[in-house]
Design a protein around this nucleic acid. Sequence first.
DNA 1: AGCAATGGTAAGTATATACTTACGGTAAGT
DNA 2: ACTTACCGTAAGTATATACTTACCATTGCT
Lengths: 110, 110
Amino acid sequence: MANVNDVIAALSDPTRRAVFERLVHGPRSVVDVAKGLPVSRPAVSQHLKVLKDAGLVFDTRDGARRLYQVDPAGVELAWRYFDRFWNKALTGFKEAAERAQRAPHAEDKS
Amino acid sequence: MANVNDVIAALSDPTRRAVFERLVHGPRSVVDVAKGLPVSRPAVSQHLKVLKDAGLVFDTRDGARRLYQVDPAGVELAWRYFDRFWNKALTGFKEAAERAQRAPHAEDKS
DNA sequence: AGCAATGGTAAGTATATACTTACGGTAAGT
DNA sequence: ACTTACCGTAAGTATATACTTACCATTGCT
């Protein structure tokens, strides 16, 4: 479980990505994350569940609180995808440019 | 226009990412992309519009056909986001680990 | 035991969106 | 001019989902 599909889908929602980005600098509690966000605490809990299922965060117990933090492995998954895709896209882009120069059929963007 | 938000949101749908990935190796027409996908051609057109608005693809005219191809700049945008985030997450991760070692309060994952 | 803080979850709702069919418009070939 | 291929868009629908409030369980403190 926790493939690239889930990672990208999890980060597609702006609110959920805001939740995620609030964990960059280290572990934070749910109420702490919810403070400053325009949604309720349960909403944050639900977002954290999605992020957790996607492998982007994990949680530890700290007394009555529960601390969430970023799982670098999940981020690395997405990074790898775009890294690989970026190289492949660049190759396809250059080859297409060379083909177009040898046989200029296609017209301008429109 | 065309920020990271739009890029990630555009690639969050599995079908739309399949459309996108079919353009990696160079320009292809709409009907060509639609072939082999389990959705109709208009659906592909709509997906391509979203991808275009996100800055992930652009199109050129080739007679009656319209060739779509990947815009490497859009991919680079997402790559940069995850690259930057990955480094920040790693830093926060290590700092949290060091804090936990100095003062072991938090318990196991659960 | 009583109380306050934390947070997960259920239920319900409203909006977003991915898909379909139908239609129109343009370009190339006969 | 007619036909064919290509493709964008409008309209409608069904599903997904992000959010709310309400409720309950757990933990720590006095």
